[in-house]
Measured scan of single mutants.
Amino acid sequence: MAAGGDHGSPDSYRSPLASRYASPEMCFVFSDRYKFRTWRQLWLWLAEAEQTLGLPITDEQIQEMKSNLENIDFKMAAEEEKRLRHDVMAHVHTFGHCCPKAAGIIHLGATSCYVGDNTDLIILRNALDLLLPKLARVISRLADFAKERASLPTLGFTHFQPAQLTTVGKRCCLWIQDLCMDLQNLKRVRDDLRFRGVKGTTGTQASFLQLFEGDDHKVEQLDKMVTEKAGFKRAFIITGQTYTRKVDIEVLSVLASLGASVHKICTDIRLLANLKEMEEPFEKQQIGSSAMPYKRNPMRSERCCSLARHLMTLVMDPLQTASVQWFERTLDDSANRRICLAEAFLTADTILNTLQNISEGLVVYPKVIERRIRQELPFMATENIIMAMVKAGGSRQDCHEKIRVLSQQAASVVKQEGGDNDLIERIQVDAYFSPIHSQLDHLLDPSSFTGRASQQVQRFLEEEVYPLLKPYESVMKVKAELCL
């Protein structure tokens, strides 16, 4: 049975990233139509530049190519590739079939990587351009969430054990800070992308030097003109047959890092959902379990974690691919890159769409948070109580021993009897502590235990987050809708 299948058929496997999760716009960027249309555009740009620099290419040939950029006979191309065992030459023939007058000058002087690699770089750039505003929107939604809850005390956790208090907004800023680093890295790697350009079979530009009869300047002009037509500021000066596969490492490393950030955020949300302090959106008709109707599973956060793990592992592909590119190139890269580049971007696209949807509907339960604080705060307040007693004339050592005994009794009630923490009640009825009984409410005010959390939130948002989001103001209103 021949390899390949009808990918629109229910009898043929289709990647869930495309069929179930990723956005239509990201799927289109990695589609065959987008790819092969870009090949034709690159052939047109090459012909236009070659004509401008004096090669015998007519206006009629150029116009014929322009008129057929979208006229792609995919069936013919597939048949040609089956016959020739070469995808680029299959599309040269297919393009030439609908451009008979231009057929002889299509791909003039070029090698397969002229269309293959340059198209990949265009796709990487455009895919990054799709991700950047999506990530900015996630940051914006979380920034709104953090600002609104900047002063809401909550129990902090280290080692997932109760620690000092923080605020809900401050905790959210930990998430935002990681995503801001990801946004900066995505922008950097996007701006650092260079075009492969017009380089020939081993990167020496020998074929173009021959076409222009040894004119170095025209060869350099050709490279520059096509690079500018493709919208790049610069091209690699040095290439082998391909652009260095280190570029793929750079791009997928940034995406993998984004995956790590999203995994951490969504894990926190899942843990908070278990504590009943916070939940992701839950639709009115949504079913959490087929057997347990009360369940409210954090399905979206779980999906993000599941896909983020996949995204983090994909960076190993370009690392290994770059390491086995012998001399000017081997074909070890080809099949692998067809999979890992598309999957990385479709996965990143999915987790950003999902995280935006989550961040637009996060639900906080202040009463649950308050109750958990009441359970733990008495123990945390013991040092403040000791200091207040010393100020009232008591002995630190005597007070410490009193607190120690009462704390152990209260802990026994919590752990052995399943009761509430009654340390404060014990202190309130103990005559030894009568000098500070009137101060206990103040000493137990949760806001006095959150330090500068709310001020940190305000400063972080104003100095770091809002300036970073400013270039994306025009796209901030787009909502994230999930079908599944």
Rank of each mutant, 00 (worst) to 15 (best):
D216M: 07
A431S: 11
S448C: 15
M380C: 04
K246P: 02
R33C: 13
I385T: 06
T94G: 10
R171W: 00
L352N: 06
T330F: 01
Q320S: 11
M181Q: 10
S407N: 04
H310Y: 07
C305R: 02
S359D: 12
N71G: 10
P56A: 09
L362R: 03
T38Y: 04
I424Q: 14
F74E: 13
A163W: 01
T119D: 06
I62F: 06
G393C: 07
I427C: 09
S151R: 11
M26A: 05
H159P: 00
T58R: 12
E79T: 14
G451V: 04
M225E: 11
I358D: 06
A431W: 08
G116V: 14
L331K: 04
R374M: 07
I386Q: 08
D333R: 00
T202I: 08
F460A: 03
L484D: 04
K276T: 07
R396L: 05
V475L: 14
K199H: 00
H97Y: 13
L252C: 12
K35G: 05
R426M: 09
L17V: 14
R374W: 06
K295S: 02
L193W: 05
P471T: 13
E48C: 06
L314K: 08
K170D: 00
D191A: 08
V457I: 12
L252M: 13
D398P: 05
E383W: 03
Q325I: 13
E481L: 11
Q164H: 04
A2T: 14
V262R: 01
F236K: 04
L271P: 01
E250K: 08
K415M: 07
K246F: 02
F145G: 06
S253E: 07
V475G: 14
T350M: 11
D59C: 14
E343D: 14
G4P: 14
Q409W: 06
S334G: 10
T330W: 01
E481M: 14
P293R: 00
S290D: 01
A348E: 07
I369M: 10
C113E: 08
D422A: 05
S9R: 11
M312F: 04
C483E: 14
D223V: 02
A103G: 11
G393Q: 08
A90T: 13
A3K: 14
E328Y: 02
L128T: 10
P281T: 12
D248C: 03
S9F: 15
T158N: 00
Q241H: 00
L155K: 01
A18Y: 13
K402Q: 11
A453K: 03
V315L: 12
V168Y: 05
G156Y: 00
R141Y: 15
R125Y: 07
V138T: 08
R40D: 00
F36K: 13
K233M: 14
I72Y: 12
G231V: 05
E343I: 04
N185E: 09
R125G: 07
F74A: 11
E280C: 05
I436R: 03
G96E: 11
T354N: 09
Q428Y: 08
M65A: 14
N71D: 13
I62Y: 05
A392H: 13
L46T: 01
A163S: 14
K391D: 05
P366N: 09
Q455D: 06
V92Y: 02
R188G: 08
L311I: 12
N185M: 08
D6T: 13
S12P: 06
V364N: 04
M312K: 04
M316G: 09
T158G: 01
F157M: 08
Q408K: 13
Q164D: 01
P435D: 09
P162E: 05
H86D: 01
K479L: 15
H310I: 10
P467D: 09
L346H: 15
S23I: 07
E228M: 12
C113L: 04
I386R: 01
I238F: 02
L255T: 12
T166K: 05
L443I: 13
P10H: 15
R329G: 02
M476P: 15
I427R: 04
R194T: 06
P467Y: 06
G259V: 01
T167K: 02
A18K: 11
Q41P: 01
T119W: 03
K470A: 13
Q325G: 10
L121T: 10
L142E: 05
L484K: 15
T382D: 02
S395A: 09
P467K: 11
P446G: 06
T167A: 01
M316Q: 14
Q63L: 10
Y466P: 06
Q164N: 08
E462L: 13
L179F: 12
L468S: 14
V226I: 06
V219C: 06
V168A: 06
N68R: 09
R300E: 06
A308M: 01
M380P: 00
K295Q: 03
R196S: 13
T450R: 05
G288A: 08
A127M: 02
T330M: 02
M380I: 05
L307A: 13
Q320P: 01
E80Y: 08
Q456R: 03
R190A: 11
R85I: 09
W39E: 06
S31C: 10
E280S: 01
W326Y: 10
L362W: 04
M292L: 04
H97D: 12
K264I: 02
K276S: 05
L406G: 06
L142F: 09
K477Y: 14
L121Q: 11
